[in-house]
Design a protein around this nucleic acid. Structure first.
Length: 738
DNA sequence: AGCACGCCGACT
DNA sequence: GTCGGCGTGCTC
């Protein structure tokens, strides 16, 4: 008789513990190693558990142990380095381990049913042999422009997969149309491990590096196969991507893989396009636009070593790669790298953990580095590289302030600004108006009795979306028809208060009615492909005036925009959130970077009530670098991050007293080297019907913070309010108001 | 997180 | 009478 076998499993439930199961003798001929998956009875259902420990004895009461049901043999076990990374994450973020695995792995790996993967289809152009094809191709040029573009795209590459084609902005219909016309064919390519060969690199595409760029490429290249973190702090247009590409060449040519993280969706097509042009190697994608099967395909191909490059958003950091040689985090300051619910990890920080664990280099790139990264760079914890020159010799846009404290504003616009817009349009150039608030107006009220339409679940004003005739709560997404009259006094004088992008668009399109206006925000680009379409129209100069939210600050470049107007950033100057100023500066500099070109430099105007405000003055006169260093000095004096470490304990319930008392009881626990602030109501105390309270824990060292948080969590079973609330921990919180 | 169990209000 | 609302407790 063989020895008893016990498994400790991560189970997909929000509990901070492992569950022990026995292996019946009939199953003991299977391999049970860390990272293998098993199906087990849990409560009265069957779930997938991931083996995190295997042993021949157990502490747990034997009579309560259940035997596992079976072993999952479909697909692979989770490779050990990835399992270890996830265990580290669970510890670091004090998050339930089962949920960490649940969120990091493709859904299909967590499903009890077996899934078979279809092989990836690749599309190629047919060699033009007969006349009919020539005729079909000719037809494309006259009518189907989209199909023509797609045809050119495919002909420029040896092969493209459907996820790549879709990510680059084409539809299945366009693809099938070309196939029907026999202009392209698909092949089921047997996936095979990536091998670098002589034509993997498109050398003609390589640009000559500037001295600054060359220094970075050689610095990283000399440190391959060991951990080093490089911050590439380069203004827009200074050629960060070329640095990435040439560094990647060194890694890929050793048959190692590269993982590239980009902010949410918007940047994936451009990055993919640029990489496709440079490398003839298998590139796999991972972003929210993929379905479950496609995600599993990426995971699988990455696991097998078939992928040379994986490009993806935050969660792509958990892609298994057998010989990862380099990680790149582009726009590392971007807030979308931090997950803002349940498992609140930071993609950039996990990337650094992974690079350390694998002993490989990592590059963080940004024109506006986060204060954290800048601090680490200035402290020589990271290698610090600056790119100060714009390629092609163009200059950075100049920022100027317009004082609107004593000026009449019409729909939020001052007269000098309108004059500047008029002049710019008259020169045949484009204008970008930036306002980080979508909708028509952030509130509506009654002119007679001053009633304000508030969302009942959040106790916050509704945003008016006039085009849809709806009031929408931007905190919980609840909707309501616009009331015809005031519910309190019956007056019909209900008016919008303040401006959103929808209103500015309406005003500008009336006021400048000889020019075309386009709005780019989450509302106007909700439909798939709509964003690309609008951006294309802008670059075709079909529109002269662009209005938008921070969507405009990400990645897209508008060479014909020579005037950028930034409205209403004053809130950030007086926010209680110490990160507001940092984010404001990043946003301003990023928006400013969208505009202009060598021959037509851009001009940036910020409308403000507080032109003398030291933060604005510093940013305008001394630039982001200086601003950030000033900001760091202030953080140091206040011992705020990155000079101190924070965690946020959140609790919510249907009544305010529960979370308050729950956290108060926690706050009375004595912690070593940790300070506790609160409990305090969240900035938006009530959200979607729940009352939310916060407790901030702060420490001078990471270790002290982790010990403090562990102590607090260990006390929760004794907390008498424990069952009344939902609670969670946020390590390194980014936004204290949530 | 699921899921069951259990205790109160308004339906055929 | 019972259907279902969600508060509470449990999961190796």
């Amino acid at each position: 008789m063989s020895q008893p076998l016990f498994l400790q499993l991560a189970i997909p439930v929000p509990m901070r513990q492992l569950f022990t199961y026995s292996v019946p003798e009939s199953l003991q001929n299977n391999e049970f190693a860390i990272g293998e998956r098993v199906i087990v009875p849990f409560g009265n259902r069957q779930v997938i558990g991931i083996i995190l420990a295997v042993s021949n004895k157990t502490e747990f009461a034997q009579e309560k142990l259940k035997p596992i049901t079976s072993k999952v043999t479909a697909h692979h076990k989770i490779p050990l380095p990835l399992t270890q990374l996830l265990m580290t994450c669970a510890r670091y973020y004090h998050h339930p381990i089962g949920d960490v695995f649940q969120q990091a792995l493709p859904v299909l790996l967590r499903q009890v049913d077996n899934i078979t993967l279809a092989p990836t289809l690749y599309w190629q152009c047919q060699p033009l042999t007969d006349e009919t094809q020539e005729i079909e191709l000719a037809k494309l040029t006259t009518r189907a422009t989209k199909q023509q573009q797609l045809y050119h795209l495919i002909s420029n590459h040896q092969q493209l997969s459907w996820p790549e084609i879709r990510t680059l902005g084409f539809s299945k219909t366009q693809l099938s149309a070309l196939e029907k016309k026999q202009l392209i064919v698909s092949t089921e390519k047997e996936s095979e491990p990536f091998q670098w060969h002589s034509d993997s690199l498109n050398q003609q595409d390589e640009l000559n590096l500037s001295a600054e760029q060359a220094v970075i490429v050689s610095a990283v290249s000399q440190l391959l196969k060991q951990y080093s973190c490089h911050l590439v702090d380069g203004i827009t247009g200074s050629g960060k991507t070329e640095v990435y590409l040439q560094t990647m060449t060194k890694v890929l040519s050793q048959n190692q893989q590269v993982l590239v993280l980009v902010p949410e969706i918007g940047l994936t097509p451009q990055t993919l396009n640029r990489f496709e042009q440079r490398f003839n190697v298998p590139i796999f994608l991972h972003h929210s636009g993929l379905n479950d099967k496609e995600r599993l395909a990426t995971w699988h191909n990455a696991y097998q070593g078939n992928a040379a490059i994986v490009i993806g958003t935050r969660s792509a950091i958990f892609t298994p790669l057998p010989d990862l040689g380099l990680i790149i985090v582009d726009e590392e300051h971007d807030a979308s790298f931090k997950q803002q619910d349940s498992f609140r990890y930071h993609g950039r920080d996990v990337a650094i953990l992974r690079a350390k664990q694998l002993n490989i280099p990592i590059i963080l790139g940004s024109a506006t580095p986060s204060f954290e990264s800048l601090h680490n760079a200035l402290n020589a914890k990271y290698h610090y590289h600056r790119l100060t020159k714009r390629a092609g010799g163009s200059t950075e846009a100049k920022i100027a302030l317009i004082d609107v404290a004593n000026q009449p504003l019409e729909f939020g616009l001052s007269r000098p600004l309108k004059q500047l817009i008029t002049n710019t349009l008259a020169r045949g150039e484009q204008v970008l108006v930036f306002l980080n608030r979508r909708g028509f107006s952030p509130a509506i009220n009654c002119q007679e009795c001053h009633w304000v339409a508030n969302c009942q679940r959040c106790e916050r004003p509704y945003t008016l979306h006039r085009s849809q005739g709806l009031l929408i709560c931007h905190h919980c997404a609840s909707q309501k028809r616009v009331p015809p009259q005031c519910p309190d006094c019956g007056s019909i004088r209900i008016k919008p208060v303040g401006q959103g992008t929808e209103q500015i668009e309406e005003y500008l399109s009336e006021h400048f009615n000889h020019h075309s206006t386009v709005r780019i925000d989450r509302d106007s680009t909700r439909r798939k492909g709509e964003l690309n379409k609008l951006l294309q129209q802008v670059s075709n100069k079909e529109h002269q005036i662009l209005i938008g939210t921070q969507m405009l600050a990400k990645g897209h470049h508008f060479p014909d925009v020579t005037l950028v107007a930034i409205l209403d950033i004053d809130g950030a100057l007086f926010s209680f959130d110490y990160r507001a100023a940092e984010n404001m500066a990043q946003l301003i500099v990023q928006v400013a970077g969208r505009a202009g070109r060598a021959s037509k430099p851009g001009k940036v105007i910020i409308q403000t009530q507080y032109p003398q405000h030291p933060l604005l003055q510093d940013l305008v006169n001394n630039g982001y670098q200086h601003f950030a260093q000033q900001g760091l000095t202030e953080r140091q004096m206040a011992l705020l991050p990155p000079f101190g470490y924070q965690a946020l304990f959140r609790a919510d319930a249907n009544y305010p007293s529960y979370p308050e008392k729950f956290l108060r009881q926690l706050s009375q626990i004595n912690l070593n080297d940790c300070e506790i602030a609160g409990p305090m109501p969240a900035a938006i105390e009530k959200r979607a019907g729940k009352y939310r309270y916060h407790l901030i824990v702060q420490a001078k060292s990471r270790t002290a913070l982790h010990q403090g948080i562990s102590q607090l969590i260990n006390h929760i079973p004794n907390n008498e309010w424990q069952t009344k609330v939902r609670w969670s921990v946020d390590i390194d919180p980014q936004d204290l108001s949530w």
